[in-house]
Protein backbone atom coordinates (compact mmCIF):
# COMPACT_ATOMS: atom_id res chain seq x y z
CA UNK A 1 0.00 0.00 0.00
CA UNK A 2 2.71 2.38 1.06
CA UNK A 3 4.66 1.50 -2.05
CA UNK A 4 1.73 2.24 -4.33
CA UNK A 5 1.18 5.59 -2.64
CA UNK A 6 4.83 6.45 -3.09
CA UNK A 7 4.79 5.48 -6.74
CA UNK A 8 1.65 7.46 -7.40
CA UNK A 9 3.24 10.47 -5.77
CA UNK A 10 6.43 10.12 -7.79
CA UNK A 11 4.41 9.87 -10.98
CA UNK A 12 2.43 12.99 -10.06
CA UNK A 13 5.58 15.01 -9.47
CA UNK A 14 7.06 13.82 -12.73
CA UNK A 15 3.87 14.78 -14.56
CA UNK A 16 4.20 18.26 -13.07
CA UNK A 17 7.84 18.42 -14.15
CA UNK A 18 7.30 17.16 -17.68
CA UNK A 19 3.91 18.63 -18.53
CA UNK A 20 5.06 21.97 -19.97
CA UNK A 21 7.78 20.56 -22.18
CA UNK A 22 5.58 17.67 -23.37
CA UNK A 23 2.98 20.16 -24.49
CA UNK A 24 5.57 22.17 -26.39
CA UNK A 25 6.89 19.06 -28.12
CA UNK A 26 3.38 17.95 -29.03
CA UNK A 27 2.47 21.27 -30.55
CA UNK A 28 5.60 21.28 -32.71
CA UNK A 29 3.81 18.61 -34.79
CA UNK A 30 0.46 20.42 -34.82
CA UNK A 31 -1.06 21.65 -38.07
CA UNK A 32 -2.71 24.65 -36.39
CA UNK A 33 -0.37 27.53 -35.68
CA UNK A 34 -2.17 28.79 -32.61
CA UNK A 35 -0.86 26.36 -29.95
CA UNK A 36 -4.40 25.95 -28.70
CA UNK A 37 -5.89 22.65 -29.92
CA UNK A 38 -4.15 19.71 -31.52
CA UNK A 39 -5.57 19.41 -35.02
CA UNK A 40 -3.34 17.11 -37.01
CA UNK A 41 0.22 15.91 -37.56
CA UNK A 42 2.73 17.86 -39.64
CA UNK A 43 6.46 18.41 -40.00
CA UNK A 44 5.81 21.76 -41.60
CA UNK A 45 7.23 23.78 -38.70
CA UNK A 46 10.55 21.99 -38.93
CA UNK A 47 10.85 23.22 -42.50
CA UNK A 48 9.86 26.71 -41.38
CA UNK A 49 12.55 26.60 -38.75
CA UNK A 50 15.23 26.25 -41.42
CA UNK A 51 13.95 29.47 -43.01
CA UNK A 52 13.76 31.47 -39.79
CA UNK A 53 17.11 33.20 -39.76
CA UNK A 54 16.44 35.31 -36.68
CA UNK A 55 15.69 32.22 -34.64
CA UNK A 56 18.62 30.19 -35.94
CA UNK A 57 20.97 33.11 -35.35
CA UNK A 58 19.78 33.40 -31.79
CA UNK A 59 20.43 29.68 -31.34
CA UNK A 60 23.96 30.02 -32.72
CA UNK A 61 24.58 32.98 -30.39
CA UNK A 62 23.31 30.98 -27.43
CA UNK A 63 25.66 28.11 -28.25
CA UNK A 64 28.63 30.44 -28.75
CA UNK A 65 27.98 32.16 -25.43
CA UNK A 66 27.46 28.88 -23.58
CA UNK A 67 30.46 27.25 -25.25
CA UNK A 68 32.97 30.00 -24.64
CA UNK A 69 31.80 30.81 -21.14
CA UNK A 70 31.88 27.14 -20.14
CA UNK A 71 35.41 26.63 -21.46
CA UNK A 72 36.82 29.83 -20.03
CA UNK A 73 35.13 29.54 -16.65
CA UNK A 74 36.16 25.89 -16.34
CA UNK A 75 39.77 26.76 -17.12
CA UNK A 76 39.91 29.74 -14.76
CA UNK A 77 37.89 27.90 -12.13
CA UNK A 78 40.18 24.89 -12.12
CA UNK A 79 43.38 26.92 -11.94
CA UNK A 80 41.93 29.11 -9.21
CA UNK A 81 40.58 26.27 -7.10
CA UNK A 82 44.02 24.74 -7.18
CA UNK A 83 45.72 28.06 -6.46
CA UNK A 84 43.45 28.79 -3.51
CA UNK A 85 44.04 25.30 -2.16
CA UNK A 86 47.79 25.34 -2.56
CA UNK A 87 48.92 28.84 -1.73
CA UNK A 88 48.20 31.25 1.02
CA UNK A 89 48.36 34.99 0.59
CA UNK A 90 47.16 38.19 2.15
CA UNK A 91 43.44 38.67 1.61
CA UNK A 92 42.80 35.04 0.77
CA UNK A 93 39.87 34.92 3.16
CA UNK A 94 38.34 37.97 1.53
CA UNK A 95 38.70 36.44 -1.93
CA UNK A 96 37.09 33.26 -0.65
CA UNK A 97 34.15 35.16 0.77
CA UNK A 98 33.64 37.33 -2.29
CA UNK A 99 33.57 34.24 -4.47
CA UNK A 100 30.25 33.19 -3.03
CA UNK A 101 28.55 36.42 -4.00
CA UNK A 102 27.51 35.36 -7.52
CA UNK A 103 26.17 32.11 -6.03
CA UNK A 104 23.93 33.69 -3.43
CA UNK A 105 22.83 37.17 -4.43
CA UNK A 106 19.70 37.46 -6.57
CA UNK A 107 20.73 37.38 -10.22
CA UNK A 108 19.09 40.70 -10.91
CA UNK A 109 21.56 42.50 -8.62
CA UNK A 110 24.51 40.95 -10.42
CA UNK A 111 22.89 41.85 -13.75
CA UNK A 112 22.42 45.52 -12.99
CA UNK A 113 25.80 45.75 -11.25
CA UNK A 114 27.55 44.42 -14.35
CA UNK A 115 25.47 46.68 -16.59
CA UNK A 116 26.48 49.75 -14.57
CA UNK A 117 30.13 48.83 -14.71
CA UNK A 118 29.94 48.26 -18.47
CA UNK A 119 28.41 51.70 -18.78
CA UNK A 120 31.08 53.16 -16.51
CA UNK A 121 33.87 51.59 -18.55
CA UNK A 122 32.10 52.52 -21.81
CA UNK A 123 32.12 48.91 -22.98
CA UNK A 124 29.82 48.34 -25.91
CA UNK A 125 27.02 45.93 -25.04
CA UNK A 126 27.14 42.87 -27.23
CA UNK A 127 28.47 39.34 -27.38
CA UNK A 128 31.59 40.23 -25.43
CA UNK A 129 29.80 41.77 -22.47
CA UNK A 130 27.30 38.91 -22.46
CA UNK A 131 30.01 36.25 -22.42
CA UNK A 132 31.90 38.14 -19.71
CA UNK A 133 28.76 38.19 -17.57
CA UNK A 134 28.22 34.46 -18.04
CA UNK A 135 31.84 33.72 -17.16
CA UNK A 136 31.35 35.87 -14.08
CA UNK A 137 28.51 33.81 -12.63
CA UNK A 138 29.91 30.41 -13.73
CA UNK A 139 33.42 30.58 -12.21
CA UNK A 140 32.40 30.21 -8.53
CA UNK A 141 30.38 27.09 -9.30
CA UNK A 142 33.36 25.49 -11.05
CA UNK A 143 35.66 26.42 -8.16
CA UNK A 144 33.29 24.88 -5.61
CA UNK A 145 32.96 21.75 -7.68
CA UNK A 146 36.72 21.33 -8.21
CA UNK A 147 37.44 22.18 -4.57
CA UNK A 148 35.26 19.32 -3.34
CA UNK A 149 37.55 16.89 -5.18
CA UNK A 150 40.72 18.75 -4.15
CA UNK A 151 39.89 18.39 -0.50
CA UNK A 152 39.85 14.61 -0.77
CA UNK A 153 43.02 14.50 -2.85
CA UNK A 154 46.20 12.95 -1.54
CA UNK A 155 48.88 15.64 -1.88
CA UNK A 156 51.65 13.12 -1.31
CA UNK A 157 51.42 11.97 -4.89
CA UNK A 158 52.46 15.41 -6.07
CA UNK A 159 55.34 15.48 -3.61
CA UNK A 160 56.55 12.09 -4.77
CA UNK A 161 56.40 13.21 -8.39
CA UNK A 162 58.34 16.33 -7.51
CA UNK A 163 60.98 14.27 -5.70
CA UNK A 164 61.30 12.12 -8.79
CA UNK A 165 62.18 15.22 -10.77
CA UNK A 166 58.91 16.11 -12.48
CA UNK A 167 58.55 19.77 -13.34
CA UNK A 168 55.76 21.90 -11.89
CA UNK A 169 54.05 21.95 -15.28
CA UNK A 170 54.29 18.18 -15.65
CA UNK A 171 52.85 17.66 -12.21
CA UNK A 172 49.92 19.93 -12.88
CA UNK A 173 49.00 18.55 -16.30
CA UNK A 174 49.84 14.88 -15.76
CA UNK A 175 48.87 14.32 -12.16
CA UNK A 176 46.71 17.08 -10.77
CA UNK A 177 44.34 17.65 -13.66
CA UNK A 178 43.59 13.96 -14.28
CA UNK A 179 42.92 13.51 -10.56
CA UNK A 180 40.61 16.51 -10.53
CA UNK A 181 38.81 15.43 -13.68
CA UNK A 182 35.52 14.39 -12.02
CA UNK A 183 35.26 17.78 -10.32
CA UNK A 184 36.26 19.65 -13.46
CA UNK A 185 33.71 17.82 -15.55
CA UNK A 186 30.85 18.30 -13.13
CA UNK A 187 31.84 21.95 -12.79
CA UNK A 188 31.82 22.33 -16.57
CA UNK A 189 28.44 20.64 -16.80
CA UNK A 190 27.09 22.97 -14.15
CA UNK A 191 28.50 26.02 -15.95
CA UNK A 192 26.94 24.89 -19.22
CA UNK A 193 23.55 24.34 -17.62
CA UNK A 194 23.63 27.70 -15.85
CA UNK A 195 24.65 29.52 -18.99
CA UNK A 196 21.93 27.91 -21.10
CA UNK A 197 19.31 28.55 -18.44
CA UNK A 198 20.11 32.18 -17.66
CA UNK A 199 17.54 34.83 -18.49
CA UNK A 200 17.93 37.61 -15.95
CA UNK A 201 21.61 38.45 -16.31
CA UNK A 202 21.51 38.12 -20.11
CA UNK A 203 18.58 40.50 -20.16
CA UNK A 204 20.74 43.29 -18.77
CA UNK A 205 24.10 42.57 -20.36
CA UNK A 206 23.29 41.71 -23.98
CA UNK A 207 23.30 44.30 -26.73
CA UNK A 208 22.61 44.53 -30.47
CA UNK A 209 23.92 41.55 -32.37
CA UNK A 210 23.86 39.39 -29.23
CA UNK A 211 20.30 38.16 -29.41
CA UNK A 212 20.26 34.79 -27.66
CA UNK A 213 17.50 32.22 -27.72
CA UNK A 214 16.04 33.12 -24.32
CA UNK A 215 15.95 36.81 -25.20
CA UNK A 216 14.38 35.99 -28.56
CA UNK A 217 11.77 33.77 -26.91
CA UNK A 218 11.10 36.48 -24.32
CA UNK A 219 10.21 39.02 -26.99
CA UNK A 220 8.28 36.39 -28.93
CA UNK A 221 6.21 35.29 -25.94
CA UNK A 222 4.94 38.81 -25.84
CA UNK A 223 4.32 39.28 -29.54
CA UNK A 224 3.19 35.77 -30.37
CA UNK A 225 5.23 32.61 -30.73
CA UNK A 226 5.22 30.67 -33.97
CA UNK A 227 5.40 26.87 -33.77
CA UNK A 228 8.84 26.76 -35.36
CA UNK A 229 10.05 27.75 -31.89
CA UNK A 230 8.43 24.55 -30.60
CA UNK A 231 10.26 22.63 -33.32
CA UNK A 232 13.56 24.14 -32.22
CA UNK A 233 12.89 23.33 -28.59
CA UNK A 234 12.00 19.75 -29.51
CA UNK A 235 15.25 19.27 -31.39
CA UNK A 236 17.28 20.77 -28.53
CA UNK A 237 15.53 18.59 -25.98
CA UNK A 238 16.17 15.54 -28.16
CA UNK A 239 19.90 16.26 -28.18
CA UNK A 240 20.01 16.95 -24.45
CA UNK A 241 18.10 13.75 -23.77
CA UNK A 242 20.49 11.63 -25.85
CA UNK A 243 23.54 13.16 -24.13
CA UNK A 244 22.03 12.63 -20.70
CA UNK A 245 21.10 9.04 -21.49
CA UNK A 246 24.66 8.30 -22.53
CA UNK A 247 26.13 9.85 -19.40
CA UNK A 248 23.59 8.07 -17.18
CA UNK A 249 24.25 4.70 -18.78
CA UNK A 250 27.98 5.17 -18.25
CA UNK A 251 27.43 6.07 -14.61
CA UNK A 252 25.05 3.16 -14.11
CA UNK A 253 27.66 0.77 -15.51
CA UNK A 254 30.08 2.13 -12.96
CA UNK A 255 27.54 1.63 -10.19
CA UNK A 256 27.03 -1.94 -11.37
CA UNK A 257 30.76 -2.63 -11.29
CA UNK A 258 30.92 -1.35 -7.74
CA UNK A 259 27.98 -3.59 -6.87
CA UNK A 260 29.84 -6.62 -8.19
CA UNK A 261 32.90 -5.73 -6.19
Amino acid sequence: MKKIMENVYLILVFIFLFLPITVLILFSFNTSSLNIVFEGFTLHWYQDLLQNRTLLESLVNTLIVAGISTIVSTAIGTISAYGLHKYSFKGKNLVNELLYIPVVIPEIVLGIALLSVYTLLKLELGMFTLILAHICFCIPFVIISVRSVLEGMDSHIEEVASDLGASRFQIFTKITIPMLMPGILSGAQLALTLSLDDVVISYFTAGPGANTLPLQVYSMIKTGITPDVNALITIMLGIVFILLTISTVVQLRRLKKEDVR
Binding site: L10, L17, F18, P20, T193, D197, L244, K256
Partner: peptide
Protein backbone atom coordinates in the same frame (compact mmCIF):
# COMPACT_ATOMS: atom_id res chain seq x y z
CA UNK B 1 20.29 2.80 -6.13
CA UNK B 2 20.17 2.42 -9.88
CA UNK B 3 16.54 3.54 -10.05
CA UNK B 4 17.46 6.44 -7.79
CA UNK B 5 20.14 7.52 -10.23
CA UNK B 6 17.71 7.36 -13.15
CA UNK B 7 14.95 9.23 -11.31
CA UNK B 8 17.27 12.01 -10.21
CA UNK B 9 18.55 12.39 -13.77
CA UNK B 10 14.96 12.59 -14.99
CA UNK B 11 14.33 15.42 -12.53
CA UNK B 12 17.03 17.42 -14.29
CA UNK B 13 15.83 16.83 -17.86
CA UNK B 14 13.26 19.65 -18.08
CA UNK B 15 15.80 22.02 -16.56
CA UNK B 16 18.26 21.65 -19.37
CA UNK B 17 16.03 23.82 -21.52
CA UNK B 18 15.87 27.50 -20.81
CA UNK B 19 13.60 28.64 -17.98
CA UNK B 20 11.79 31.03 -20.31
CA UNK B 21 10.93 28.21 -22.66
CA UNK B 22 9.41 26.31 -19.76
CA UNK B 23 7.39 29.39 -18.79
CA UNK B 24 6.10 29.46 -22.34
CA UNK B 25 5.01 25.83 -21.89
CA UNK B 26 3.01 26.86 -18.83
CA UNK B 27 1.46 29.73 -20.74
CA UNK B 28 0.19 27.25 -23.35
CA UNK B 29 -1.20 25.06 -20.56
Amino acid sequence: PRTQKILMTLVMVPFLTNSLIRMYGWLVL
